[in-house]
Amino acid sequence: MKNTACPPKGSEPLMSTSRHRWQGLIYLMPALLVITMAVGYPIVHLFEMAFGQTNSFGIITGNAGFKNFSGLFASGLMRVMLNTVIWTAGILVPTIIISLALAYAVSLPLKGQSFFRTIIIIPWAIPLTIVAILGDMAFNSTYGQVNTLLLQLHLISHPIGWLATARTSFPVMMILAIWVSIPFTTLTLLSGIQAVPGEILEASAIDGAKGFYRFRKIILPQITNALQLVVLINLAYIFNSFPIIWIMTQGGPASTSSTITIFVYQLAFTLGQFGQAGAAALLAFIILMGLGVAYVKVYRRTEGNLL
């Protein structure tokens, strides 16, 4: 998508001599140091665990080659992976769609705009574990407020056992996860929409573009950078999300609602199999990395990208 109405970009790098290219790394150092301290060694250790023999506290005692990986399939990895795919896609796609709608809505000059913007922040302001605990209470099959409300409104005649089977518990937990993912996604997309140059919008109005057509044809192509960022960040968070499932079902009944993070956590801390846990975590990372790279490749062609 070419657009000529954009303000001039500074994308042409200023310093290009090779000395300067190396000198620039100085500015990266502080951030690199903090990130290395936080995750540098843990990532190395993850590799060591994945290919090593470990005791029940995650201390490496020997070499295991690929044994940890082959052991995973016997432990039920495939079903967990399938669940994780459903979980990730089923949260990511609705989150993006709903957030796009909300972001566009609060970008318009509406009455109560700042009220709505504050409302949108709420799910993010409540600590995630509290959201999970709240969900556990609200969807309880007997005293849960959701059943109480539905009964009072005569929408159901018997209380529903929301968390009794994965058929209902999985969608319920996904709805909660969508709810908590919306604020960050909406805010980031909103900032993208706010930055769409006015001239483009004006011109489109003259052309008679309206409603959904205007949104899809004029606004959407202008916010690809923001969209790319929220897709990548959400992809990682949703794939790795832990508290909601752990608190509400612990992956049950009979690990039918388990995802890869629950699987890894149980391997490590319930079964003491840190080697297998490391292998599963590494596998999950590789899959996520693959998805991320594929996604970025698809969007490479759009202009103005950082990558």
């Binding site: 790098p13 290219r21 790394l25 190395v44 970025v296």
Partner: peptide, 29 residues
């Protein structure tokens, strides 16, 4: 703003650290 060495690799690398699950990272952190 600078064409530093490995710019794209850095960018992607930083994002990649987000791909690890905190509950497993914490063991070694």
């Amino acid at each position: 703003r600078m064409n530093i060495v490995g710019r794209k690799i850095w960018l992607f690398g930083f994002l990649a650290t987000q791909l690890f699950s905190p509950s497993i990272i914490i063991v070694s952190a």
